[in-house]
């Protein structure tokens, strides 16, 4: 369970989030949609600790995590596949995946064996990554990098997963593939917060959705409710 309560955050003097609140219940997929600059990515970064909330609370399974370093929050069970994927380009695919499980693996020896089951699971989900496991992540295509970013997040066996714009810059076929994976993870019971520019596609997988405007949640509801909202239809769902 992820709770965001009245969070204010930003970069230096520019405040982006002006009292954002949202909840992601266990086993559900929640979509966060809104125009560019509304604060979707900033919300994600404030949750995972990449920026420190100036006010408000972030709770992961009831435990306040706001203000902790991102590495601590990650070890508490929050995985964040960031905007732009951010794979480690100079490391091979398998090393990227292993680092996803960094928090619970031995540092020096035997880490490969301890992660074998998780690697199998990710390779089962993305057979393409198995084929390219020795290849440097920087040489992968955009779609493969996105799969790697999701796979890397899964390696942590997270309680909650944040996916920021997983479809960004990808060909429509690949976007379909990414969403197929998201549906599969949802079927397995993964809790996810999904930021998406393709609001329509996001609402198809989501159980609940929030629409952001200028640093606040403007509208919220189930996808069915949001589809009935005239304003929203006009602005985002075309």
């Amino acid at each position: 369970m992820l709770l965001v309560e009245d969070v204010y955050a930003g970069y230096g003097l520019s405040e982006v989030l002006l009292g954002t609140s949202l909840a992601v219940k266990p086993g559900t997929v929640v979509a966060l949609i809104g125009a560019n600059g509304a604060g979707k990515t900033t919300t994600m970064r404030a949750i995972s600790g990449l920026i420190r909330p100036a006010r408000g609370r972030v709770l992961l399974d009831g435990e306040p995590v706001g203000g902790l370093p991102a590495s601590r929050i990650a070890r508490l069970g929050l995985a964040h596949a960031p905007e732009g994927r951010k794979v480690f380009g100079t490391l091979c695919v398998e090393d990227n995946l292993l680092l996803g499980a960094y928090g619970r693996l031995p540092r020096f020896f035997g880490f490969r064996g301890r992660a074998a089951a998780d690697l199998e699971r990710v390779y089962g989900l993305f057979p393409r990554l198995r084929e390219r496991r020795r290849q440097l992540a920087g040489t992968l295509s955009g779609g493969e990098q996105q799969m790697l970013a999701i796979g890397r997040a899964l390696m942590a066996r997270p309680k909650v997963m944040l996916l920021d714009e997983p479809s960004m810059g990808l060909a429509p076929v690949i976007v379909q593939e990414v969403f197929r994976t998201i549906r599969q993870l949802k079927a397995e019971g993964m809790t996810m917060l999904l930021v998406e520019q393709f609001a329509k596609t996001a609402l198809e997988v989501a159980d609940y959705a929030y629409v952001m405007e200028r640093g606040r949640i403007a509208i919220e509801g189930t996808p069915a409710e949001l589809r009935r909202d005239e304003r929203l239809l006009a602005a985002y769902l075309g």
């Binding site: 590495s71 951010k86 794979v87 480690f88 090393d95 680092l99 960094y102 693996l105 540092r107």
Partner: peptide, 30 residues
């Protein structure tokens, strides 16, 4: 050898490539 063969070494490399992404893996950049 430590940098290339151990997970700690790979974490070292990860932080040098992208500090924030390293943090998201649970690696303390500090």
């Amino acid at each position: 050898l430590l940098k290339r063969r151990t997970l700690l070494g790979k974490a070292f490399e990860a932080v040098s490539v992208d500090r924030d992404a390293g943090e998201l893996m649970g690696i303390s950049a500090k």
